[in-house]
Amino acid sequence: MAKIKGAIVVDVERCKGCEVCVGACPTNVIGMADNVNGKGYHFAYMADADACIGCTNCAIVCPDGVITVYKKKMTA
């Protein structure tokens, strides 16, 4: 069965760690990193990468537009 898999790329240096994307994700993919970026913010990252379905919800609520979403139909 074909399955949709997604992935997000976070622009770490522009992320302000507001956590709005965490609640917007329907599959709880996103977590906040223990590390901080150059501004001292805990940035968002893919904590559970396998669960991402590429729905773009996180990217459209991100106030700073730091999330880029990729989506691919997997056949296997």
């Binding site: 790329v9 590429g54 537009g65 880029t68 979403v69 989506k71």
Partner: peptide, 19 residues
């Protein structure tokens, strides 16, 4: 696995160039 998904042809959403 992620490298396979993160390819330009699979782009689903990107901040608009007008920002």
């Amino acid at each position: 696995m992620l490298k396979e998904i993160i390819q330009p042809e699979n782009l689903a959403y990107k901040k608009t160039e007008l920002m």
